[in-house]
């Protein structure tokens, strides 16, 4: 009996092929297997026969929404900055979307980065993607030569070892704490919806840090980012980091130095996270692609927690609710305003 992922892979191929064949879409964005076990890479199928290369498993960690604007743009005729938009309908693109990716697409639609009419969103309820670092840890850091997966376990083999690992144990933190695994917008659905998940302590990781003293938190933060090599993989993998000139690359003004000085690194991480405030859907791409294992998701998760707490908002759940930093309420909380001095602080 085929596994869930095998069934999904089959359905993806069938659907992509028919969308391409009928000319509904000019391209279909999914994943194909990478060169290493447990590495998937984004793949664009442009012909019906390409669809056979599409694949789905627990290692699809990169948010496909990241590639969508550029892919859409590639189908537009070239034009100069002030030329009128091309007339007539432009080619569409099909794309796979789990819960967090679809929410991310919602944000991008709200921010005019994706034209909803030009995408055929193929929704897949996410069962959680695997954290390769957790997996490596399970096998003691030994080199993995192949991974076989069924619905609830992974069989990992390498030079002189084969281990069966409980899949959920190595699922990414963001997926483990995800409450919206289902796509929020889609045109086609593959598999079944899993429904909202109840996670009472979805912000547990943030709560733990908040419980630390101010100095401990600073040490934690310093320690967390100390290995950063400023490669910007986190930024590049993030679909929300779409500025043509990122603040880290700007020289007028120079917000952040380009060195790996700890202050510059800290400012980079603070601002990167802050720029995602009220927008980040916790897809985990940033963390998944970090070569140094920095858990920068904790930063965005903190902001996500505060946005929910202060403004009762979660990004990407619908197209209508305005993003929290471009709206306000007269009675927004303002405990932080001086003269409302916080308890316990003035010890």
């Amino acid at each position: 009996m085929p596994s869930i992922n095998e069934k999904i892979t089959e359905e993806i191929r069938k659907l992509a092929s028919s969308l391409l064949d009928s000319g509904t879409v000019a391209a279909f964005l999914g994943f194909t297997k990478g060169t290493l076990p447990g590495r998937m890479q984004p793949f664009v199928a442009r012909k019906p026969e390409d669809a056979q290369k599409l694949h789905w498993n627990s290692f699809c960690v990169v948010n496909l929404a990241n590639y969508l604007p550029a892919l859409l743009k590639s189908f537009e005729p070239p034009r100069r900055p002030n030329d009128p938009p091309p007339e007539g309908p432009l080619p569409k693109v099909g794309v796979l979307a789990t819960g967090c990716w679809s929410r991310n697409m919602v944000v991008q639609i709200q921010e005019n980065q994706i034209d909803r009419d030009r995408v055929v969103i193929v929704g897949i309820s996410s069962r959680g993607m695997v954290d390769r670092k957790k997996l490596l840890e399970k096998v003691g850091g030994r080199e993995i030569t192949s991974i076989d997966e069924d619905d609830h376990s992974l069989t990992v083999t390498g030079q002189g070892f084969e281990e069966k690992i409980n899949r959920w144990d190595v699922v990414r933190d963001n997926c483990q704490t995800c409450v919206h695994p289902d796509p929020v917008i889609y045109d086609e659905l593959i598999g079944e919806l899993g429904g909202e998940r109840k996670i009472p302590d979805r912000f547990r990781q943030v709560d733990e840090i908040e419980a630390l003293s101010i100095d401990e938190r600073w040490s934690w933060f310093q320690n967390e980012i100390s290995s950063c090599i400023r490669c910007y993989a986190c930024r590049n993998a993030c679909p929300l980091c779409y500025c043509p000139t990122c603040f880290v690359d700007d020289s007028r003004p120079q917000w952040v130095g380009k060195s790996i000085d700890k202050v510059d690194t800290a400012l980079f991480h603070i601002l990167r996270a802050y720029h995602c405030a009220g927008r980040c859907t916790d897809c985990g791409s940033c963390e998944s692609v970090c070569p140094m294992g920095i858990r920068m998701r904790l930063f965005t998760k903190k902001l996500q927690k505060d946005v929910l707490e202060l403004y009762d908002f979660e990004p990407g759940l619908d197209l209508e609710t305005p993003l929290p930093l471009s709206t306000y309420r007269m009675d927004d909380p303002q405990d932080f305003i001086l003269t409302h001095i916080k308890k316990g602080e003035e010890k």
Partner: peptide, 8 residues
């Protein structure tokens, strides 16, 4: 050159 048209 820097604008993304995000509309904030």
């Amino acid at each position: 050159m820097k604008c993304t048209g995000c509309g904030v």
